[in-house]
Amino acid sequence: MHGPVLLSWLLAALTAAAGGHCLARLRRSPCTAHAADRPAAASRHAYESDAAEALMGFGMAAMAVSGSTVPAAVWAWLFGAPAVAFLLAAAGGPARRAHRLHHAVGGLTMTYMALAMGAGSGHGHHHPAGAGTPLLTGALLFYFGGYSLWAGVRLLGAPATAAQGAAGLPTATAGLPRACRLSMGIGMFAMLLTM
């Protein structure tokens, strides 16, 4: 990622925290807890969504700090394969199509940034500003900027409920998945801005 080192580390911390929360949700997924309370389709969707968001969060964190030290082909496979899977799943049926398309756009955007980094960096750890196609980068900035605003509005409208944490202390949980999606949308926007 091109830009100040502090920004890269802050972005990595933000997206790794979001990925960690998604991974924690994945561990106590509807497949293992409260499976009888939810329909099978909702359980599969929640598991699929948590897995995709955990991969995206940790991948964004790794890409933010490692830059072009990892070959672009590795990033392209890591994000491109799930993106294609989400595209095929979205084409296969109307259930959760918008959500799957969003994950596909995220994976394809990460692939695009990785390939632009690989093409734009000769020897250093960062790619030069202006790598990538300006029109495509602008369209993706528009998409993730709009998504971040939409996710922020949804987060503000989330009901304030509390649940008992591991230590018995109340923890606000209603907005955590939305906050993770918002932070990853902002992270994607910030990574695109530095291209």
Results as ranks from 00 to 15, higher is better:
Ala64Asn: 07
Arg100Gln: 07
Thr69Pro: 01
Ala81Leu: 10
Gly168Tyr: 15
Phe189Tyr: 05
Arg181Cys: 14
Leu7Gln: 12
Pro128Ser: 11
Pro39Glu: 12
Arg154His: 10
Ala18Lys: 01
Gly93Lys: 10
Ala51Cys: 15
His123Cys: 13
Leu10Asp: 06
Val74Pro: 00
Trp150Phe: 03
Met113Phe: 11
Asp50His: 12
Trp9Cys: 12
Arg181Ile: 09
Phe58Leu: 09
Gly59Ala: 13
Ser43Val: 07
Ala160Thr: 14
Met63Arg: 02
Ala62Trp: 09
Ala17Trp: 05
Gly187Met: 01
Ser121Thr: 05
Met63Pro: 02
Gly67Met: 11
Gly152Phe: 03
Ser183Glu: 15
Tyr143Gly: 05
Cys22Leu: 03
Leu88Asp: 15
Gly146Trp: 15
Gly118Ile: 00
Val70His: 06
Gly107Pro: 02
Leu26Gly: 07
Gly185Arg: 01
Pro159Tyr: 00
Ala16Tyr: 07
Ala119Phe: 00
Gly157Gln: 00
Thr194Phe: 10
Arg28Met: 12
Thr133Arg: 11
Met60Glu: 10
Tyr143Leu: 10
Arg178Ala: 09
Ala85Lys: 00
Thr32Asp: 11
Tyr47Cys: 14
Gly130Ala: 05
Ser8Cys: 13
Gly20Asp: 04
Ala131Glu: 11
Gly120Gln: 04
His45Ser: 06
Thr15Lys: 07
Met110Thr: 09
Ala17Val: 05
Gly165Leu: 08
Gly145Val: 06
Gly107Leu: 04
Ala61Asp: 02
Arg97Ala: 03
Ala54Pro: 02
Tyr147Thr: 03
Met184Pro: 02
Leu6Met: 06
Met191Leu: 12
Leu101Ala: 10
Ala129Trp: 00
Ala167Trp: 04
Phe86Glu: 10
Val65Asp: 15
Gly122Asn: 14
Ser43Gln: 06
Pro30His: 15
Val70Trp: 11
Cys180Asp: 10
Met63Cys: 06
Leu176Asp: 08
Phe142Met: 12
Ala35Gly: 08
Gly57Arg: 02
Thr161Gln: 02
Leu169Asn: 05
Leu88Lys: 09
Ala179Gly: 03
Gly19Arg: 06
Pro4Ile: 01
Val153Phe: 03
Val65Lys: 00
Gly19Pro: 02
Pro134Asp: 10
Pro177Lys: 03
Arg100Tyr: 07
Ala167Gly: 03
Ala51Phe: 15
Gln164Trp: 07
Ser121Cys: 01
Ala151Cys: 05
Thr15Gly: 09
His103Ala: 05
Ala62Lys: 12
Met184His: 07
His103Gln: 05
Trp150Val: 14
Arg44Asp: 07
Met184Asp: 13
His127Thr: 08
Tyr47Gly: 14
Phe86Tyr: 15
Leu140Val: 02
Gly67Asn: 13
Leu155Tyr: 00
Phe79Ile: 05
Phe144Asp: 04
Leu169Ala: 12
Ala116Lys: 03
Ala139Met: 14
Thr194Lys: 11
Ala167Thr: 05
Ala190Val: 10
Ala41Met: 14
Arg25Cys: 06
Leu182Asn: 04
Ala91Asn: 15
Met117Gly: 08
Arg27Ala: 08
Ser66Val: 09
Val5Glu: 07
Arg25Thr: 09
